[in-house]
Amino acid sequence: MSGYEARFRVWRGDEQGGGLRDFTVEVNEGEVVLDIVHRLQATQAPDLAVRWNCKAGKCGSCSAEINGRPRLMCMTRMSVFDRAETVTITPLRAFPVIRDLVTDVSFNYEKARGIPAFVPPAELAPGEYRMFQEDVDRSQEFRKCIECFLCQDTCHVVRDHEENKRAFAGPRFLMRVAELDMHPLDAAERSGLDRKRTAQEEHGLGYCNITKCCTEVCPEGIRITDNALIPLKERAVDRKYDPLVWLGSKIRRRPS
């Protein structure tokens, strides 16, 4: 396959406003969208702002919306597009624009601070931890998260509802609560911290109505809804509501 000239539309601007700019740019075999953005910087738009780091799908820096879909630019190959197609790149919609493709993601760092950390078991010294693989599998799945915040961007609870941001931590950080809640040695409960209750009351778990948008955009393939959010909801229900609701949830789950 030889190189070709592709048409791109890239959003340029800042918090004051901006718009899509048209570019025609060379594309070569095997390239990803981030390669093309770099070529634009080197040849046509040296001050085009973009965040990136590892260019290997491991750091979660180069998140953007490509033809309207939240994706990592470094893991989106040009071969998925028709050559005649115009590729449109816009910044993440759920977060305020700083410049061009760079958004202010501080919302996520604030939410991270709101989740109480792992509580080490007091009776175990470093080196004495014993956990079995099958017991850490689930939390390990959640720790694959590269914090690209695509799930936070796509989640309809906050995507077009700025007013929900205060009360809702978003899929990434609800998954963090689930990860700690399922950690075999987390001593939160003994220290008086009920993670299931706080998920519901402080981090807005109830806002989630399991549409699975977060799971669909996760570049790590983490089953956020099925493995983190739904089980957390069930555990929260177990804990919080009256015995009838608890019983109801159990009965519904029985195979018919």
């Binding site: 931890y129 850490v136 700690l180």
Partner: peptide
């Protein structure tokens, strides 16, 4: 080992 006390989850041996 101290990373485990901060919440790290390494892969495990058969005996945990």
């Amino acid at each position: 080992w101290e990373l485990e006390t901060w919440g790290a989850l390494f892969d495990r041996t058969k005996d945990g």
